[in-house]
């Protein structure tokens, strides 16, 4: 197995506070990788570092064979990291179809010239882009009209739309920020199926979750953060037995 993403000694400070303290981890190509930890452990910070929302203060960022000094979100997206957001950030006043088509942005080229003159290349690209978008909507299980505004979709559908939008960027790594938050048991179950499906298409999946049980049942490997440090990394069974992990979870509330 080769590492798709490799972080070495990554640090991130806010004010004088170290939110991440020399975190090193790697995510292998083709696996489902889970990131857990008690509240305030630095999960979200790490997630934002991986998706480029935060610039790392120290350490190395290596993705798909390349080192990255500057990690702007759009650069990482173009490199092949797509994400969803914990508190759903769709383009609310655009249609479901448009939302996914925007995900196609970086895989298409039409510029102002194409927009104004609608030449053959642009028309073909637009049609292909819309077709792919509709396909993805079906794939994640959105059955409503693709012309429904994103804000008019149900909560579960919005979460799925975010995944469709992320997949439209053709990522190598799909990063999900608490994808099951607010979902009921059936929805969570079908999410699990969807994530396995996505992995089967060759996309590596990484997720943060509050729900430890979900992570343990879903992931190939799990990392545990506590106070900005990585305290364990490995297959679920191993991590479950790790005394540091048990202490971290018992020390805080029972999550």
């Amino acid at each position: 197995m080769t590492a798709l993403l490799e972080l070495t000694g990554v640090g991130k400070q806010f004010g004088g506070l170290a939110a991440l303290n020399r975190v090193s981890l790697h995510i292998n190509a083709g696996e489902i990788y889970g990131l857990i930890g008690p509240n305030g452990a630095g999960k979200t910070t790490l997630f934002n570092v991986i998706t480029g929302l935060y610039q790392l203060d120290s350490g190395k960022f290596h993705f798909a064979g390349q080192d990255y000094q500057s990690t702007m979100p759009h650069l990482l997206a173009q490199a092949g990291i797509a994400r969803t957001f914990q508190n759903i950030r769709l383009f609310a006043n655009l249609t479901a179809l448009e939302n996914v088509m925007i995900g196609r942005h970086q895989r298409t080229q039409a510029g102002v010239f194409g927009a104004l003159f609608l030449n053959r290349a642009t028309r073909t690209e637009e049609r292909a882009s819309a077709d792919r978008a509709r396909e993805l909507l079906r794939y994640v299980g959105i059955t409503k009209s693709s012309q429904t505004l994103a804000k008019n979709l149900s909560y579960g559908e919005q979460r799925r739309l975010e995944i469709a939008r992320a997949l439209a960027t053709e990522p190598m790594l799909l990063a999900l920020d608490e994808p099951a938050a607010g979902m009921n048991a059936t929805e969570t179950e079908s999410l699990k199926v969807l994530l396995h499906d996505i992995r089967a298409t060759g996309v590596t999946v990484m997720l943060i979750e509050h729900d430890v049980k979900l992570i343990m049942g879903l992931c190939d490997r799990v990392a545990v953060l506590d106070y900005g440090r990585l305290i364990a990394e490995g297959v679920p069974d191993e991590v479950r037995q790790n005394p540091a992990v048990i202490a971290a979870y018992l020390g805080s509330d029972n999550e």
Partner: peptide, 30 residues
Amino acid sequence: VSHRLEKSRIGRAWMAIREDEIAASSMGIN
């Protein structure tokens, strides 16, 4: 011109920025 732009890849990217800049950049939009 406005109409063509609105219905284009460029127009969609603009509206994505208008709706949510962070989400837009996470979709690879510069």
